[in-house]
Amino acid sequence: MEVIARRPETLTKTPFTYCPGCLHGVAHRLIAEAIEENGLINQMAGVAPVGCSVFAYKFFNFDMAEAAHGRAPAVATGMKRARPDMHVFTYQGDGDLAAIGTAEIVHAANRGEKLSVFFVNNAIYGMTGGQMAPTTLPDMKTTTSPYGRNVEDIGYPIRMCELLSTLVAPYYVERVSLLSPAEIIKAKKAVGKAIQYNRENRGFTFIEFVSTCPTNWGIDPVKSRDWARDNMLPFFKVGCFRDKGEENVQGVEK
């Protein structure tokens, strides 16, 4: 009998610390698989954020650095510049990347740093207990927007793929979702492409995952995917925003 699906060797044996059904785990697995499939386990280094995935440095089975909140793209820049023979990625949540770390991500993208950035958008601050994120949807209730996000007061959610694809340098920018096996299969392709481009040192690659936070949304894991489909996908449209490796890339799926 042949094993056709198993834990990739690019993950350590440590169980994830995420809540049951949290899709951070799916994103981790896709990244780990792509690194394994690209044969990069011995040249790879990752940077973990501050957020629920703060312990990502324990889960990936190669060298990992833990960055201060929002600073992962700067840390990864230093790492890649110091060791150009290695391949570097960051893994960041929406608070980490789109609030406190906005300057770092925009400028790493603008410099076209030869990194992959994996951005998990769950529309909330998971780790600190469900506060409003820069990606929290209009009228969405969180512990710091108890009456719903008032866009007149605090503005609209930030669409990072759209924002970053206004820059000239980024090589590949795509938003994917993790809300069903079919969507995960699409996401796997995108992650694989980002890591392949990374291996070839082509430039800055950015994958946004539309994800969930069953715990802080207060919705069970299966239904939270439906909630994300109904509420997040209309605002955060999946699709490829930039792919310098392919001709005629269309914008988002309509």
Partner: peptide, 20 residues
Amino acid sequence: LQAESEVAAINMVYGAAGAG
């Protein structure tokens, strides 16, 4: 590398120093 801020610069240092 001229960083976007001192915050970014010191974190680049963290990354490069972490790379030994």
